[in-house]
Amino acid sequence: MPSETPQAEVGPTGCPHRSGPHSAKGSLEKGSPEDKEAKEPLWIRPDAPSRCTWQLGRPASESPHHHTAPAKSPKILPDILKKIGDTPMVRINKIGKKFGLKCELLAKCEFFNAGGSVKDRISLRMIEDAERDGTLKPGDTIIEPTSGNTGIGLALAAAVRGYRCIIVMPEKMSSEKVDVLRALGAEIVRTPTNARFDSPESHVGVAWRLKNEIPNSHILDQYRNASNPLAHYDTTADEILQQCDGKLDMLVASVGTGGTITGIARKLKEKCPGCRIIGVDPEGSILAEPEELNQTEQTTYEVEGIGYDFIPTVLDRTVVDKWFKSNDEEAFTFARMLIAQEGLLCGGSAGSTVAVAVKAAQELQEGQRCVVILPDSVRNYMTKFLSDRWMLQKGFLKEEDLTEKKPWWWHLRVQELGLSAPLTVLPTITCGHTIEILREKGFDQAPVVDEAGVILGMVTLGNMLSSLLAGKVQPSDQVGKVIYKQFKQIRLTDTLGRLSHILEMDHFALVV
């Protein structure tokens, strides 16, 4: 994948999101292997301009796509893939009243899908469409860049269908997702969380590099694949309309690839034109409109599966009536509230959605109805927002919020430890010299600072030695090549209790 991002070429006709291997024109390309080798690009942008032909009021008969309808489940399912879809609609009884809503608040519980998330729908649909058009064949390999849930859905379907599955996901995604993927037989590649989507090191860039190296491999490409919004247009939206008897006044959905909100909203605009569509985008993402909503100094966020630093091709923002931004604290607070007060075992993005819903639905009156999409299960986040310690460490809970008995030293300040200034190293000294210094002084790690004293990161003896043994660096290389740029900081005025929580999850903390 090139470091400079080429513009994806656009073909003359058809839909841009065809499933299957992508040609340089962004659509299915038939021909000899030699032709494909000559024409197939190194990668295709996940934010390529959409060429979708959908228009409100256009006859369904003019759609270029294969459409399906929700099917009634048999008493005995032939395999677990038949437990994807037909998820329950559940009334939220307490939270709406707590925040003064007059309307009825309903939750579409997508964590009841077989793999635990709304992404099971698009995973199965992308595979079925690729099999139907002859792209996927027995023994082929599926590769997908994902925040985890699409990966789980694909790995689940691949396990049943017999495909090899490789999932490329950023490091910030939970260990629970990784464990589930491994249990399903998927191979996992992790990428830096802070890598831009168009960087060769991003999950998108690495996935395309693997595709170019592995024979008979395919990126189904949830960011561009029409099967993504079509899955929701054909099934999720129809289920909502049936469950609500066609009567709903507002739908609120958090947005990642945009397939969920695009597919549902398009069908609702056709069948229930008075329904307002509300999009939820986390602070630090750029999906919301108008652009002024996205202006923030924050560039990272903890909530998973929603928000991006690019506009995915499948996201149709014209069908969203209003956007709201959400933050991590309210997302996790509301997710825990949904679990504790409503018994809905949902993930953090569901918290984002409901946090926005109780604001947006203030305009609705008694007798009206708001539906929220709860995308995934708490299963993926047992060591994250479900953990009091994690919430404390991230600053989303305060010590006084917890009532468990603490040891005698818990409320003492870090400054009472009488710490001395640490050994520091410059980023320009060599790895070999740094190892000598650390061994001589008896230290395992040291902060790396520039000549102005600005902290650049941390270097550890173990990481340097393993990097040297693996051949990633040489003793003569500058130590700046092996620094940890993500590390926890703590102030002298913070409590030892807070430091204790940090050290339970990290090997060190830097006192500043």
Rank of each mutant, 00 (worst) to 15 (best):
G263T: 01
I122R: 00
E4V: 11
G57K: 09
R132P: 08
R45S: 14
K98V: 12
I142G: 02
L28M: 13
I261V: 15
Y233W: 12
I214M: 09
R125P: 07
T236F: 13
I76E: 07
G96W: 08
G26H: 07
V118M: 11
A159T: 15
I143R: 01
S73V: 13
S23K: 09
P64G: 05
D129I: 02
R209N: 09
C272Y: 09
L156M: 07
K137I: 09
R190V: 08
N225K: 07
G153T: 01
A183R: 02
P170K: 02
N113F: 00
E128V: 14
P273I: 06
K30R: 14
Y233F: 12
L241V: 15
G274Q: 11
T235L: 11
S61V: 03
D86H: 11
E34P: 04
S61A: 12
N149P: 05
V255T: 11
E270T: 05
E9T: 09
K137T: 09
Q55S: 12
N194I: 09
R125T: 05
G31R: 10
S27F: 06
Q7P: 15
R276V: 13
C165N: 02
T257D: 00
Q55D: 11
S19A: 14
A69Q: 10
D133T: 09
R224F: 01
E176I: 00
N93P: 08
A158P: 02
K72I: 10
L106E: 07
P88M: 04
P138V: 08
R182A: 04
L230I: 12
A231L: 06
A226R: 10
G185L: 00
A159R: 13
E4L: 09
L124H: 11
V206E: 06
G57A: 15
P12F: 06
S50R: 02
V206I: 14
V178Y: 06
P49D: 09
D79I: 09
A155R: 02
V189Y: 08
L251P: 00
A237Q: 06
G139A: 02
S147V: 00
P215S: 08
C103G: 12
E37D: 12
T236R: 02
D221G: 08
G116M: 07
L156T: 04
L124D: 09
I44V: 15
K177T: 00
C165Y: 01
P6F: 07
A226L: 04
R276N: 13
A38Q: 04
V255K: 02
